[in-house]
């Protein structure tokens, strides 16, 4: 029960997994959105009619933060961190939960930032030609794929950890 690895026991590793999923997904999205939104603000200052397309382009890197949030929330719910049941998580299970969250932590951080880069380029495209907003969104969504894949795998791994 009180077995530890790197000073943390199973319960603490589980809490760490939920926290870092939210933190890293959030950082990726913050940077991505800021990058696209800042340029969108410049474009909108000149041409407010482009708001529709630019809003979607700026918001696209935001999904990574949501994936991190979903992962974190599921860990909290599945392992009873709210009710105090979580205290009984053994080190082996805690480590499995932590390792299961790794895909979301890493991929959401990186893909959020890079999706911001693609979205920013999309904003530049829309600034020139308003009708290219759809194409910009598709290009940006290509980066999204890998965040979704990491979410799927993380969810399965968490479920596997819960099943024991």
């Amino acid at each position: 029960m009180n077995e530890t690895f790197l000073w943390l026991n199973g319960y603490q590793w589980t809490v760490l997994a939920a926290s870092l999923s939210v933190i890293f997904g959030g950082i990726g999205s913050c940077i991505g959105i800021t990058s696209a939104a800042k340029m969108s603000a410049g474009v909108l200052a000149e041409d407010p009619d482009k708001f529709g397309g630019l809003l979607v382009l700026s918001i696209l890197p935001g999904t990574q933060g949501i994936y991190g949030f979903i992962t974190g929330l599921l860990v909290v719910v599945f392992f009873g961190l709210l009710g105090g049941d979580g205290k009984s998580i053994v080190l082996a299970q805690g480590m499995r939960i932590f390792l299961g969250c790794l895909p979301v932590m890493i991929m959401c951080l990186i893909s959020g930032i890079y999706q911001g880069v693609v979205s920013t380029a999309g904003v530049a495209m829309v600034a020139k030609r308003g009708e290219t907003a759809g194409q910009g969104m598709i290009l940006s969504a290509l980066v999204e794929t890998y965040a979704v894949l990491s979410l799927v795998v993380s969810l399965f791994l968490i479920m596997a950890a819960q099943a024991g």
Partner: peptide, 14 residues
């Protein structure tokens, strides 16, 4: 993008 984004956005439209 963080440093030049706003200015670039404006001049791209111009």
């Amino acid at each position: 993008p963080l440093k030049y984004g706003y200015a670039v956005g404006r001049i791209k439209v111009r």
